[in-house]
Write a protein that binds this DNA or RNA. Structure first.
Length: 218
DNA sequence: GACCAGGCACATC
DNA sequence: GATGTGCATGGT
């Protein structure tokens, strides 16, 4: 079986096993974007607390965030960890969208997604995963998000070599699947789900793997 | 108390 | 290009 077919098969298996995950159902686009930054190397529960603090004060708005100092913002997002750095990153994004798109998310997402990706990557604090989360979950455009779980699940099941770059894995998914943001959204979430349960960091195998057959022959 | 979590930038070799 | 380190709270 080709790797592309195995990528498709893995999606069907995961979806059948776990069902839809409903990630970032989206109170708003900006909330997704803030979530993408706050979630860097952090559990989602801690991110939710931070977002709730901003919600309560009606701060989920480019204009409101502009008025906050970095220190004020940092205190509100403490629960998400790395709060000083993340406050700076959010301020960097706000500055970016203000200067390039007149502060309008709508304008920003009208941009070709690959052009936008390159521009997002120029923001200090936004790397490939965060940029892709912003485009997929914030903009609902079909770009595939790779994260540590994606790498772990794929490499431990022999779908990619140990040494595979972010871009190579992203190309693999995007060349194998229909370019559907709904599928990309679910697939990424499903990989995190199965990774959390069975592909732990310090265990070099996918233990108790729920996927059919030998865990390394999907 | 150790370990990890839906990364990224920067230094050093 | 690969590898190491700081950033930081909160759950297991």
């Amino acid at each position: 079986m080709t790797t592309s077919k195995r990528i498709n098969k893995l999606y069907r298996l995961l979806y059948k096993k776990y069902g839809p995950q409903g990630w970032w159902p989206g109170d708003s686009q900006l909330e997704c974007i803030l979530g993408a930054i706050l979630a860097q190397n952090t559990s989602w529960k801690n991110v939710e607390k931070a977002i709730n603090n901003l919600r309560k004060l009606n701060l989920i708005s480019i204009d409101k965030l502009k008025l906050l100092t970095t220190d004020e913002l940092a205190q509100l997002i403490r629960s998400s960890g790395y709060f000083n750095q993340k406050a700076l990153k959010i301020k960097n994004f706000v500055k970016f969208i203000t200067e390039n798109y007149n502060g309008s998310l709508e304008n920003m997402f009208e941009e070709d997604m690959y052009v936008l990706r390159d521009k997002l990557l120029s923001i200090k604090g936004v790397g490939p995963e965060t940029a892709d989360c912003i485009i997929l979950y914030g903009g609902n455009k079909p770009i595939f998000v790779i994260d540590t779980y994606t790498y772990r699940v794929l490499s431990r099941h022999g779908l990619v070599p140990e040494q595979t770059s972010y871009n190579e894995m992203q190309e693999l998914f995007m060349d194998s699947l229909n370019l559907d943001p709904g599928i990309f959204n679910e697939y990424h979430a499903l990989l995190v789900k199965v990774g959390k349960e069975h592909c732990k960091k310090r265990i070099p195998l996918c233990t108790g793997c729920p996927l059919e057959g030998d865990p390394h022959t999907i």
